[in-house]
Amino acid sequence: MPGTHNSLSFYGGDIVQTQSMSLTNQLLSGIRVLDIRVRHFYDKFAIHHGFVFQNAYFGPDVMAPITAFLAANPTETVVMRLREEYNAQGNTRSFNQTFQDYKNRYGAFIWRPYSNNPTLDEIRGKIVILQNFSGSRHGINYGYLDRQDSYSVSTNWDLYSKWQKVKAHVEKAEHGRRDIIYANFLNASGGSFPYFVASGKSSPQTSAPRLLTGLTTPGWKNSYPDFPRVGCFIGICSIAFEGINNLLSNYIANGHTDFTGIVMADFPGAGLINNVISLNNNDR
């Protein structure tokens, strides 16, 4: 299942922004797993990425578009990781109680949990909560998932190490038990911008060139074997960075795996989304 990391993080500049498609467009593009971070603020859930308010609230900007999508597409399902973000302020009740208030309003669309591994038929037309907060049970405990979520990179040159962790988790999911939910986060930040980790490019623009690692072949032919070789002249090629989204999309397209579990990405494009979805056509 393709998903988005920090699904509504649009504001705050290159260091904070992780998505460019609206929530509705994400769903229409095939995204089925969302990562929703909320600040408990005056008995409401405000959407945040860290301290940065994303000009959105849980009711009108998350639940309303999701339930509208499910009403129009009752055979689909949406999985939502929900977690508390930043400092609570001005509340007269607990986080769990505020969620229950939203649940009372949108309960017809929220799956009632009785299993940690429901079938698709059991959750069609519903929102499945991956519960990343304490309180009464509202969904699947987020801690139940087998996750790869190594999100810190110190420099651009840590990108390949991140890719190795992503690839290792794909291999783990492919050969693992089917009564476990696997979630593989492609994102990272810190010493690099989220757009660079996703694309390997010099700026967020789709047409931007890839950055170069500074290494060339044949001298460093064994370095970063999955990164592209570009600008070749008289047998010498530059080794360019490649984004995690493209690396995984190509990995799937080239037949290296037939199972990924949940894939959570910043700025996912059609290639990655469609390649993940295509794996559902394989016989397992």
Rank of each mutant, 00 (worst) to 15 (best):
M1F: 07
P2Q: 15
G3W: 02
N6M: 07
S7K: 03
L8I: 12
S9G: 08
Y11H: 14
Y11A: 10
G12M: 06
G13N: 06
G13M: 05
D14G: 08
I15D: 11
Q17H: 03
Q19H: 01
S20L: 03
S20A: 07
L23I: 08
L28G: 03
L28Q: 15
S29Y: 10
G30H: 08
G30K: 09
I31A: 05
I31S: 05
R32Y: 00
L34D: 08
D35K: 05
R37N: 15
H40E: 09
F41L: 14
F45D: 06
F45I: 04
A46I: 02
Q54N: 01
A56K: 11
G59R: 03
G59D: 12
V62R: 04
V62T: 08
A64Y: 11
A64L: 15
P65H: 08
T67L: 07
F69T: 06
L70D: 07
L70Y: 07
A71Q: 15
A71H: 11
N73G: 08
P74A: 00
P74K: 06
T75M: 07
L82M: 12
E84A: 11
Y86T: 15
S94L: 05
N96Q: 05
N96M: 00
Q97N: 11
Q100S: 05
N104L: 09
R105D: 13
G107L: 06
A108H: 08
R112C: 09
P113R: 03
Y114H: 14
N117G: 02
I123M: 05
G125C: 00
G125A: 00
K126I: 09
K126E: 13
I127A: 11
I129F: 12
N132E: 10
N132Q: 08
F133S: 11
R137K: 14
G139L: 12
N141S: 13
Y142P: 02
L145Q: 04
R147E: 11
Q148A: 12
S150G: 14
Y151F: 12
S152M: 06
V153F: 04
S154H: 14
S154K: 15
T155K: 04
T155Q: 06
L159Q: 10
W163P: 06
Q164R: 15
Q164T: 15
V166L: 00
K167Q: 14
K167C: 00
A168K: 12
V170K: 08
E171V: 10
K172A: 00
E174N: 13
E174G: 06
H175T: 12
H175M: 00
R177A: 14
D179L: 02
A183P: 01
A183T: 08
F185L: 02
N187P: 01
A188F: 03
S189W: 01
G191K: 09
S192L: 05
F193W: 06
F193I: 02
P194K: 01
F196G: 03
K201F: 01
S202E: 13
S202W: 00
Q205Y: 11
A208N: 04
A208K: 03
L211T: 06
L212Y: 09
T216Q: 12
V230E: 14
G231T: 11
G231Y: 11
I236W: 00
I236R: 13
F241V: 05
N245L: 10
L247N: 00
L247Q: 07
L248G: 08
N250Y: 09
D258M: 12
T260G: 07
V263F: 04
G269R: 09
A270R: 14
L272V: 00
I273L: 05
I273G: 04
N274M: 01
N275G: 07
V276H: 11
I277F: 00
I277P: 02
N281P: 00
N282M: 15
R284C: 09
